[in-house]
Nucleic acid binder design. Sequence first.
DNA 1: TCTATTGTTTGACAACAATCAAACTATATG
DNA 2: CATATAGTTTGATTGTTGTCAAACAATAGA
Lengths: 107, 107
Amino acid sequence: MRALPHPATEDIQLTEVLRALSDPARLAIVARLAEVGEEACNDLGDGLGVHKSTLSHHYRVLREAGVTRARWVGRTKVSSLRRDDLESRFPGLLDAIIDGALSRTHA
Amino acid sequence: MRALPHPATEDIQLTEVLRALSDPARLAIVARLAEVGEEACNDLGDGLGVHKSTLSHHYRVLREAGVTRARWVGRTKVSSLRRDDLESRFPGLLDAIIDGALSRTHA
DNA sequence: TCTATTGTTTGACAACAATCAAACTATATG
DNA sequence: CATATAGTTTGATTGTTGTCAAACAATAGA
């Protein structure tokens, strides 16, 4: 329950980022992360109505795609967006997606 | 071989756009369309190394997701990006994706 | 050390997606 | 009209994905 491999910034693939964000649950997670900065998994899972193992799966997909960074704080895992890395690799992409997701969620 | 339904601009869904563009073949099609403006299917299929029926499938996915607009010109189908529609719905998204795809392809 | 808490892993299953091949449809043109 | 051309549709196959449930692992705290 310790290793959390992340892809290097230059190894982040556009198609994998897009695929990771094409799932409604994962897009919701990212949108929420964009608002709160970083948060523990369970807090984020609230309201998604999804099983905890499914949630764990989604977090792994996001991390392995290079969308999020995760670290252990005690026994809780804290995730945050890799904003700078994504911005340097695909300028404007993350912001555009977050804007689109948020305008859909509460507009 | 005539009906080509397109979603209305306001019905274009972010997750469907992202899913459509998360496939390497479709992303390549979109990148190419971004360069040449509009083009017939077979011309675009060149170099993708994919069967014509598979190509037809990809075009339908792109069209149904609201990414492309297709029209018949004689017996050839011409596709183009729905730049304005996508820009009004998800500002900056398409450009960011195209930039990312092109910088990967020939940089 | 025992226990409660957090999250992961594995297995199973159903739904979906990409691909090809072959048959089909529609259109342009000789 | 006959034929070649341009795409589509259908069927089969193969691989991927989202989901849950149950078992597991690791850590914090009493």
